Simulated assay, not measured.
Amino acid sequence: ELGAQVEVIHNKPSGLNINERCGSQYTQDLETRVKETGAAIGLAFDGDGDRLIAVDEKGKTITGDQILVICAKVLKDRGELKNDLLVSTVMSNLGLTFACRKLGFKHHASKVGDRYVLEDMQRLGAVIGGENSGHMIFLDNHTTGDGTLAALQLVAAMIREGKPLSELAKQMEIYPQKLINVPVKAKPDIAAVPQVMEAIRQVERHLGDQGRVLVRYSGTQNACRVMVEGPTNEMTEKYCKEIAEAVKSALADPENIGPSADDWRF
């Protein structure tokens, strides 16, 4: 109705092939098709349609964090970014925080989960929030994640800015991020485990303001999740492994050690 040419792929469900090589977590086929057709944008939704990940006109995947920054900047320019605030989670890339600072609005990090994003949006008076995974809430339009709504907001941002998605995405630099998942036998307060806390403090001293460390337990598994962000891939991987080894030494179940830390990933 609006004059766009739309091509849909992976739209033949069998009842068994949900998210099979497609959707917001598997964008390879979409990347290829965007480049083959010369499309302006590719839009990838998850199985129940509440998440969006985009592909720019060059075939590069754009993260949920980048989409949030793009849309928040347009709202800011239009005087519609309530309280000059964007809400995401503690798992958002460090580049999002720096981008918000550079673009002139505030960033609040909630606990992981779109329900916590919504709670903090309502508590702090924000109109946009979400997760790097693609859950996005535009509170003036909806109170939950809606991939189609997020896609329309992103396309509208491209039209209003008059720029391709690849250019808009440059507003946020993505910092190298390493994630390691360590099986544990118990979940004591991390602050009460000296060996782990010392490893965290050492890494934080080395990183300074050029990175960050997040160590938290899974809410659904007997696992400790270690995340490190830093200025280079090499440094980020090195420090993440050091903390993961400290967690393994202090908390891992010797009967369920599993793979080496090199393979413990989310």
Rank of each mutant, 00 (worst) to 15 (best):
residue 1 E to Y: 15
residue 9 I to C: 12
residue 10 H to M: 12
residue 20 E to S: 12
residue 23 G to R: 01
residue 27 T to A: 04
residue 30 L to R: 02
residue 34 V to E: 01
residue 36 E to F: 06
residue 39 A to D: 02
residue 41 I to G: 05
residue 43 L to D: 00
residue 45 F to A: 06
residue 45 F to V: 09
residue 47 G to E: 02
residue 49 G to N: 13
residue 51 R to D: 02
residue 52 L to M: 06
residue 55 V to I: 10
residue 55 V to A: 05
residue 57 E to H: 07
residue 57 E to R: 01
residue 58 K to P: 00
residue 60 K to D: 12
residue 63 T to D: 08
residue 68 L to I: 11
residue 73 K to V: 12
residue 74 V to E: 10
residue 81 L to H: 08
residue 82 K to S: 15
residue 84 D to L: 15
residue 85 L to T: 12
residue 86 L to V: 10
residue 88 S to Q: 15
residue 91 M to H: 14
residue 93 N to L: 11
residue 97 T to V: 10
residue 98 F to K: 10
residue 100 C to P: 07
residue 100 C to Q: 08
residue 103 L to I: 08
residue 103 L to V: 05
residue 107 H to R: 13
residue 108 H to E: 13
residue 111 K to L: 13
residue 112 V to K: 02
residue 112 V to A: 08
residue 113 G to D: 03
residue 115 R to W: 04
residue 116 Y to A: 08
residue 118 L to A: 05
residue 124 L to D: 10
residue 125 G to Y: 15
residue 126 A to D: 07
residue 130 G to D: 07
residue 131 E to C: 14
residue 136 M to Q: 08
residue 139 L to S: 07
residue 139 L to R: 08
residue 142 H to D: 05
residue 142 H to V: 10
residue 142 H to W: 05
residue 142 H to I: 11
residue 145 G to T: 06
residue 146 D to S: 05
residue 150 A to S: 04
residue 151 A to Q: 03
residue 151 A to L: 03
residue 152 L to R: 00
residue 152 L to K: 01
residue 153 Q to E: 06
residue 155 V to P: 00
residue 157 A to I: 04
residue 158 M to T: 00
residue 158 M to I: 00
residue 159 I to M: 09
residue 161 E to I: 02
residue 162 G to C: 02
residue 164 P to Q: 02
residue 166 S to A: 06
residue 167 E to W: 13
residue 172 M to W: 02
residue 174 I to Q: 08
residue 174 I to A: 04
residue 182 V to S: 04
residue 187 K to R: 15
residue 192 A to R: 09
residue 193 V to K: 07
residue 194 P to T: 03
residue 195 Q to V: 11
residue 196 V to T: 05
residue 197 M to N: 09
residue 200 I to R: 05
residue 202 Q to S: 11
residue 205 R to H: 13
residue 209 D to A: 14
residue 212 R to Y: 09
residue 212 R to C: 05
residue 215 V to E: 04
residue 216 R to L: 08
residue 216 R to H: 07
residue 217 Y to M: 09
residue 219 G to S: 12
residue 219 G to M: 06
residue 225 R to M: 08
residue 226 V to I: 10
residue 228 V to E: 00
residue 229 E to P: 01
residue 229 E to W: 09
residue 229 E to N: 06
residue 231 P to D: 14
residue 236 T to R: 01
residue 237 E to R: 09
residue 237 E to N: 13
residue 238 K to E: 13
residue 239 Y to L: 10
residue 242 E to P: 03
residue 247 V to W: 01
residue 247 V to Q: 03
residue 251 L to S: 00
residue 253 D to Q: 09
residue 255 E to I: 13
residue 256 N to E: 10
residue 259 P to V: 04
residue 259 P to T: 07
residue 262 D to T: 03
residue 264 W to K: 08
residue 265 R to A: 11
residue 265 R to E: 07
residue 266 F to V: 15
